[in-house]
Design a protein around this nucleic acid. Sequence first.
DNA 1: ACCTGAACACCGTTCAAGT
DNA 2: ACCTGAACACCGTTCAAGT
Lengths: 232, 232
Amino acid sequence: MTTTPAPGSPAWWTRRTTPAPAPRRGRGRPSLDTDQMVATALRLIDEHGVQTFSLRTLADALGSSTATLYRHFANKDEILALTVDLALGEAHTTPSGGPAEWRDVLSTMGHQLRAVLARHPSLLPTLMDHVPVGPNALAQRERVLAALLHHGLPPALAARAFTAVGHYVIGFAVQQREFDGPPLADYYGRLDPATHPAIAATAESLTAIGPDDEFAFGLGLLLDGLAQQIDR
Amino acid sequence: MTTTPAPGSPAWWTRRTTPAPAPRRGRGRPSLDTDQMVATALRLIDEHGVQTFSLRTLADALGSSTATLYRHFANKDEILALTVDLALGEAHTTPSGGPAEWRDVLSTMGHQLRAVLARHPSLLPTLMDHVPVGPNALAQRERVLAALLHHGLPPALAARAFTAVGHYVIGFAVQQREFDGPPLADYYGRLDPATHPAIAATAESLTAIGPDDEFAFGLGLLLDGLAQQIDR
DNA sequence: ACCTGAACACCGTTCAAGT
DNA sequence: ACCTGAACACCGTTCAAGT
């Protein structure tokens, strides 16, 4: 019995249990271990985008070979998942000041997660196609859920609120991301008003508000709905 | 001046303006045209997943060659975008019964979009990494926004509500999708309650409710928040 | 004028052969 | 015991050569 079995392919995020003895080379210090490899991968993805990130480039940056990577990780997906989890570790998902209300807990979580995505925009695609269940992701889920339960939220509501806020932040980041060109609102605004009158009419008001305000607006909307659900 | 310039790479979704004369071979009927190619691509993706979809397999299915595909499309991304737009065309985003309330408009949109994703789950990754701006996506945005404006929603609110519902549905689909293995709730439930007490406590209540109810719950939550925003 | 085989420069992954 | 060059079976994309 190794570690907890993960959903989907066999333990897809878990660090591969080292094949034989531990792969440390120096004396006490790990020299070049798995953590440093993941950190290097995150740096490469931040600097050059996930599109150009390959096992070749990672091996080169480490002064190693692609075959060696497979002694530390099961496959490329696992490396990407660990990379996401490393970045998630930067978030402080509970408010620093003492005992907050449940609303503050979720608001802080939303803003912190958004900050992580702002620092590592290239991680967005990877974050989207798997629910992160790495150690840092789990620790944060635990911390936030514990805080919500502590403030009296029913368990079912707490779990769904956590998910809802997570989805909102990711969804917002996707929308916000401007491709290589002009923002989406400009594109909508340039459509023919004759064929798309409603899109044109709403496009203007989209640009009037800054992204920070829009983020806060939508998050507040979600929390308002939650509050109503509780008082019911 | 061709068509409206799209965001990002030059007109990434628009059908490539045919190079020379129109590429129709028969007499009046298009025989094997771009639309059929996209339809075949969608079928292949539905049947075998987006992971195994390659230009080679598409060319084979069409009895053609990969090089020929580039006479109809700019690149693979464009094919995927058109595939998504074709699927989005299946949605009927306005309620069939006469003049509904704004709440019904958004609710219908949410359920319709969810139905499309249920029919074409393999499209989820593609839907996630670009905001769809194909002809069908635009037509639906137009229809829904027009209905919302007609029912008195302020333009800024209408635009954000549309986005919020879209994000919610996509986010829900991501969460709902079970990988190859057991659902996520099972995974959470199997974690050590000693180290993750809150996750364990909330995992139980997650499985108690069916996916349809959970979807409706979250959507209602969002709409409640919106309603409060309007009455303010 | 249209189509395509074959090439190009890559991938992720594996394994026999090195030390 | 550990590492890796080189291969394998693919990619998306291009273009010279066919008809």
